[in-house]
């Protein structure tokens, strides 16, 4: 049985339009699950439902078999890390971390011990008497994490916790979060709009769009096999070609035939990442198409070409060995095992 179980959750702010449309999500104990999606897709709303800040219109929310749908926030015992960190500016790092334990009316010795332990784990011991404003973004982030973890929460909820950090610190912190989460074995929900961040950290990813989960799978599966065009676009697929199925199971776009590893409905789209299209010397009759380079963009490790072909413009990333000029003819091959059908 799932540890966290969201059943047919509907949420509406104005009573008319639903922000969440019958959302279902199951999370196993100890798992780190990301909610991924563009702004307005309902991922933060989902997290706030779990946290208890938003009432549901309908549906049930269970943790460990217990119904939490109507339990008030302060009785849920979930640790939450906010995008803004929401540290208490009038309290020191130590007092911030101790807040949750004080609310539980623990005795002072126990509080001191637990706080000291948690500060140690998060590498904050030397900052324990500082005020939040005397700390850097990454340090504040760790205080927020320590404060949420010290109460030994049933669930850890992270609402875009890294979006206020610079790129380098982000990578550092997400490794840190993953390390702590695994070490303490806390079931975690992580909200983000950054696919790289979410793939690197998650056991499973729920890609959300318009208040529903479009795909819920491991990062590897989502990366390689997006189910829908939306998911594919969101995780970096750029070339979408409308095709229809032939009697032999191949797909055809105008006069070009594409062989794929899987087959599906008759009218579909094939999609492929710019990195996966091969530039070849001779035109290929199967899975091949030719075109003229319209735009060339320098990406750093290689060039990106926008190639106009009879079946539409394709974005192709060069491999860096050979550089082509704008206006040049290019023969492309779309390898069957890289093509995804949506």
């Amino acid at each position: 049985m799932a540890f966290v179980d969201l059943k047919d959750i509907c949420v509406s702010y104005d009573g008319k339009t639903n922000v969440l449309e019958g959302l279902n999500l199951q999370i196993k104990e100890g798992e780190l699950v990301s909610l991924l999606g563009p702004s307005g897709c309902g991922k933060t709303t989902t997290l706030r439902v779990v946290a208890g800040y938003i009432d549901t219109k309908s549906g049930e929310f269970l943790v460990d078999g217990q119904n939490y749908t109507k339990v008030p926030v302060h009785k849920r015992n979930f640790g939450i890390v906010f995008q803004s960190y929401a540290l208490f500016p009038h309290l020191t790092v130590k007092e911030n971390v101790a807040f949750g334990l004080k609310m539980r009316k623990m005795d002072k010795a126990t509080i001191d011990k637990k706080v000291a332990e948690m500060l140690e784990i998060c590498g904050l011991s030397e900052y324990k008497d500082r005020l939040p404003k005397q700390m850097s973004g990454g340090q504040r982030q760790r205080v927020a994490l320590a404060r949420a973890l010290v109460i030994e929460p049933k669930l850890l909820l992270l609402d875009e916790p890294l979006s206020n950090l610079d790129a380098k610190l982000r990578i550092q912190m997400r490794v840190e979060i993953k390390r702590l989460q695994k070490k303490l074995g806390i079931t975690t929900i992580f909200v983000t709009h950054d696919q790289e961040e979410c793939f690197s950290i998650s056991d499973r990813v729920a890609v959300m769009n318009g208040g529903v989960i479009e795909q819920y799978d491991t990062p590897e599966n989502i990366y390689a096999h997006p189910n829908t065009e939306f998911v594919a676009r969101f995780i970096g697929f750029e070339n979408f070609i409308s095709v229809h199925k032939q009697a032999d199971g191949t797909y055809k776009a105008q006069d070009y035939t594409f062989k794929t590893e899987t087959t599906g409905k008759d009218e579909a789209k094939i999609t492929i990442r710019p990195d996966d299209i091969e530039i070849i010397d001779e035109p290929s009759s199967l899975n091949g198409v030719s075109g003229i380079i319209q735009v060339r963009t320098f990406l750093g490790k290689s060039y990106q070409y926008e190639v106009s072909t009879p079946i539409g413009n394709l974005i192709v990333n060069g491999d860096g060995n050979k550089v082509y000029e704008t206006g040049q003819d290019l023969n492309l091959r779309l390898p069957a095992h890289k093509i995804v059908l949506v």
Partner: peptide
């Protein structure tokens, strides 16, 4: 909200 989540 943070205070509430911490049990207040």
């Amino acid at each position: 909200e943070a205070a509430e989540s911490l049990g207040a």
